[in-house]
Design a protein around this nucleic acid. Structure first.
Lengths: 110, 110
DNA sequence: CAAGCATACCTTGACAGTCTAGGTACATCC
DNA sequence: GGATGTACCTAGACTGTCAAGGTATGCTTG
C-alpha cells in the first residue's frame, strides 16, 4: 500500500471544503478532522494548507465566518457556505468529474 | 459544459506522460497531441508544462531521450520509458486511484 | 499542581509545478 | 511570400502546498 500523495490535492482542497460545509457550518479544525475521517486518513489536511484556503475562499465570497464557542469551550471560527459558494461547489464538482473521466480515458487505454 | 480546469493537472501530468510512453516511444509534441486526442480535448497540455516535465522526468531516470527525425522530416526528441519509469507508472497509478477514491468518498456523502 | 495532550487558531518562508508569452527553425500549402 | 503546422525550448510570474514554527486554553493524569 503506497503512501497517499498530497500533490494531487492541488486544486481539489477548495472543493472538498465546500462539500464539507454543504452539510452545515463547521469550523476549520473540524473540517480537517471530518475530511480525514471520511476518507480513512487517505487525505491529510495540513493546517498550513487549510487556513490559507479558508481565508482565500472567504475573500472570494464562497464562505463566511462567524466567531463562536465549541462544545469544549474553545473559541472557534464557524464557516458556512454562501449562495455563491454553493454555486461554486456545483462548478467544481462538474469540473472534477470531467477531469477524472479524462484521466481515466488515458489510463484505461489498452 | 464548464471549461476544463488545468489546476487539477498538478501532479498527474507525469503519470499521463508515463502512460502515454508505455505504448512505445514518442516525442514531446506527439505526446501532447495524443493526450488531447484521447481525452477529446478535455486535457490541454501546454508546452510550458510539457517540456519542463519531460526534462524533470529524464533527470529522475524515468524516461530517456534520443534525437531522431519525424515522418515529416523534422528533428524530434524521442522519449521512451525506462524500467524505473515503468515502476513509477505503477506507483503513480495506484496513488491516483487511491486519491480519486478518497475524493469520491467525500463527494458522494449524502 | 504540573506536565502533557488535544483542541483551535494563525503565519512565515521555501518549494514545486503550471501558465503566459515569448522565441527558434523549417516544411508545406496557397 | 505569407500563413500554418510541426517541433523544440525558456524566462518569469503566479498559485497553492508544506514544514515548521507560534499562541492560547481546557482536560486528563500522575
Amino acid at each position: 500500500m503506497t503512501k497517499p500523495r498530497t500533490t494531487f490535492l492541488q486544486g481539489t482542497l477548495d472543493m472538498l471544503i465546500l462539500k464539507t460545509l454543504s452539510w452545515g457550518a463547521r469550523h476549520g479544525y473540524a473540517i480537517a478532522r471530518w475530511l480525514e475521517e471520511t476518507t480513512n486518513d487517505a487525505l491529510q489536511i495540513e493546517e498550513g494548507s487549510l487556513y490559507p484556503a479558508l481565508y482565500r475562499m472567504e475573500r472570494k465570497g464562497w464562505i463566511e465566518a462567524e466567531w463562536g464557542v465549541s462544545e469544549l469551550g474553545k473559541r472557534i471560527k464557524l464557516y458556512s457556505l454562501t449562495p455563491l459558494g454553493r454555486k461554486q461547489l456545483r462548478i467544481e464538482a462538474s469540473q472534477w468529474a470531467q477531469f477524472v473521466d479524462a484521466v481515466a480515458a488515458v489510463m484505461r487505454t489498452a
